[in-house]
Nucleic acid binder design. Structure first.
Lengths: 200, 200
DNA sequence: CCCCCTCTAGAACGAACGCTCTATCCAGGG
DNA sequence: CCCTGGATAGAGCGTTCGTTCTAGAGGGGG
């Protein structure tokens, strides 16, 4: 059961493989549902290596995993938002990309940040902070794209919040219902909402 | 450490106390982060009682906990939506209620359904189905309120999805950022979106 | 050649996990 | 009175958890 580990063995460093495995596993199973030994095995590493790179233990590793998911999705977000000069249409494309990812994984791969952070919020402030940073990062990316398209700075900032939050909520609903309908509808509504600000 | 258990000892049945404790604890700590012994202790019950009422073990208890959170929030939702004949304003009130609950618990009590279902989606289809049922239930309540206010049936159904999903996403963002701003903004945007349908 | 340091390797520990099991309590019918 | 069955009580099962620890592999600089 190290199907993916083999492929990654060649190019990536051990540390990178561990972080990727942690991010992917916690995305599916949450923080408490994922064991360090499972992460090590999936990454093709040993326990010693994991604790060598992350002496802070599971929490430090989870922070790195959340940060990895942060930049991973930020890259996708930037790419999609830059691909269309109409931000409303770009957001619709975004929902399609999310739906595609969900469907491709049999509705298993939701938001990597949410699943990791949700259960551990009270106990591990570091993880919660990393999740908040991710959301702030994504929101800024959306807000900049909207502002670039002619929407006022304050409105763009507020819309950044709601776009990210609605995508988040719709992705989880799609995951639970095993249907891309929530994401499709969210795309329509967000496009309509953005459009109502661009007209003004 | 059985502060709440004492208060509930008098009126509620053991089964009810166990379900409430499970719902509240899993809401904070997730499915895997909550132990059955902890639930029993918090409920003022013993392990034997828990397995007497839930022979299906932790999974069956989690399903009951999710269902409990379902009807609990459905009651609040109905009450708030019926309190104002303007559904846009009612949704804003809804965000305020959620923000109040979050703030009162020091940003610990988010959505009871999400936290329980997120980590256990792949392993426990029963829990996932209970979560999907909860979302569908809430969506119907919102859709009915919108339809009653004069919005077309199809539009009301679609808006039901997005209202619930945006509330969900905004609540988690508020929890992560420890600020009610995401919920406040979500309320404004949802009201604007609903208004754009009512005018048409 | 040896030393040193980064990294790998995995056995071992105490604690906690979900769950099973037996024993006991107690109200209601015979 | 005993008997029965739902409910309570908690010790104990095997397993897995996060973590620690010691040992070794491998490669440059002295």
């Amino acid at each position: 059961m190290k199907t993916n580990a083999e492929q990654e063995d060649t190019a990536l460093s051990t540390r990178e493989r561990v972080v990727r495995a942690a991010s992917r596993l916690m995305q599916r199973q949450g923080y408490d549902g994922t064991g360090i030994k499972q992460i090590a095995q999936e990454a093709g590493a040993t326990l010693g290596s994991v604790y060598h790179f992350f002496p802070g233990g599971k929490q430090e590793l989870a922070v790195a995993a959340v940060h990895y998911g942060d930049v991973e999705f930020a890259d996708i977000l930037r790419e999609v938002l830059y691909s269309d000069e109409d931000p409303a249409q770009a957001v619709v494309t975004c929902t399609q990309v999310l739906a595609e990812g969900l469907r491709a994984s049999d509705w298993a791969d939701g938001c990597p940040v949410t699943a990791t952070a949700l259960g551990s919020a009270g106990r591990a402030p570091d993880i919660q902070r990393a999740a908040a940073d991710a959301f702030a990062n994504w929101r800024d990316i959306v807000a900049q794209a909207l502002h670039r398209a002619g929407i006022g700075e304050a409105d763009a900032r507020d819309l950044g919040w709601t776009v990210i939050n609605t995508l988040e909520g719709a992705e989880f609903a799609a995951q639970a219902a095993q249907s891309d309908e929530p994401l499709r509808i969210a795309g329509e509504h967000l496009a309509r909402l953005i459009g109502s600000y661009r007209a003004a």
